[in-house]
Amino acid sequence: MTALDLATDTTRAAGRTTLLARGLNTVSKFVRAWRNRRAFYRLSDMTDSELRDIGLTRADLHVAVTSPFGLDPTTRLRAIVDARAEEA
């Protein structure tokens, strides 16, 4: 086995590891987004005053629900709350 063969084998192994890591990262993000979306839907059961206590309005929920399924709607809500806090 030459040094070139060893380098090629190492590169292939690193490529497989990187591909596996990317796949696991993608699955992890999807599962996190799915869990957060379930929690997000529970927000709609809250009263307007409860939503106001955490810095949200019912309209904010309608805006965030339009995000694609694979994306986390709570990220959008966080941006809304942060923007509102900066205005105050």
Rank of each mutant, 00 (worst) to 15 (best):
M46K: 15
D53Y: 01
G55E: 04
L4Q: 13
D82N: 04
W34D: 05
D9F: 07
L19I: 10
S67I: 14
R38H: 09
R38V: 10
L51K: 08
L61F: 07
H62Y: 06
S44W: 12
A39Y: 08
L56M: 00
R16I: 12
D72V: 01
F30Y: 11
L77G: 03
D5T: 15
S67V: 15
K29W: 01
V81M: 12
D5R: 10
L51D: 08
R52I: 03
Y41K: 10
A7Q: 08
A14M: 12
A85L: 09
A14R: 12
R35C: 09
E86D: 11
T57C: 03
D45F: 04
L51F: 05
R35I: 11
A21W: 07
D82C: 01
V63G: 02
G23Q: 10
R52K: 13
T26N: 15
T66R: 14
S28C: 11
A21C: 09
L6S: 11
L6M: 11
D53K: 04
R78F: 02
T18P: 00
K29N: 06
R84G: 01
R58C: 07
V65W: 01
L24N: 07
R78W: 01
P68W: 01
D72R: 02
I54F: 03
T75R: 05
L71F: 14
G23C: 02
D60K: 06
E87R: 12
L51A: 09
R22K: 10
R22A: 06
P68V: 11
T66H: 07
A88V: 10
E50K: 14
V27N: 12
D60F: 00
